[in-house]
């Protein structure tokens, strides 16, 4: 699987990354090499094998519906880049 520059840009955008134009060829080459490498999987005979999403094949444990978190807004927002009146601020969302 070989990726071209436009695919690299597309994937980067999906992941909200910008790759500098000069670095695109190197990324394209490395990503292609990685994908070529994982393409070995294609040779595995997996018919009839159920996917394994998790090494622990056990059910989800549930939590009782009881409040056990207290307000720590001040602590949490002490490490925030920008806040005002208890709200997180980000650059304007254009809709």
């Amino acid at each position: 699987m070989s990726l071209g520059p436009s695919q690299v840009r597309e994937i980067a955008h999906l992941a909200r990354l910008t790759i500098d134009g000069n670095d695109i060829p190197a990324y394209a080459e490395n990503l292609s090499r990685i994908l070529d490498f994982v393409d070995q999987l294609g040779s595995a005979a997996t018919e009839g094998t159920a996917p394994l999403a998790h090494p622990l094949e056990m059910p989800q444990r549930l939590r009782a519906d009881a409040v056990d978190e207290e307000d720590q807004r001040e602590l949490f927002q002490s490490i925030a880049p920008a806040t005002q009146d208890g709200l997180y601020l980000v650059p304007k969302v254009i809709e």
Binding site: V38, A44, T46, T49, A50, P51, L52, A53
Partner: peptide, 8 residues
């Protein structure tokens, strides 16, 4: 596919 091979 990777998850299937993971089980194997």
């Amino acid at each position: 596919k990777a998850q299937q091979v993971r089980r194997m």
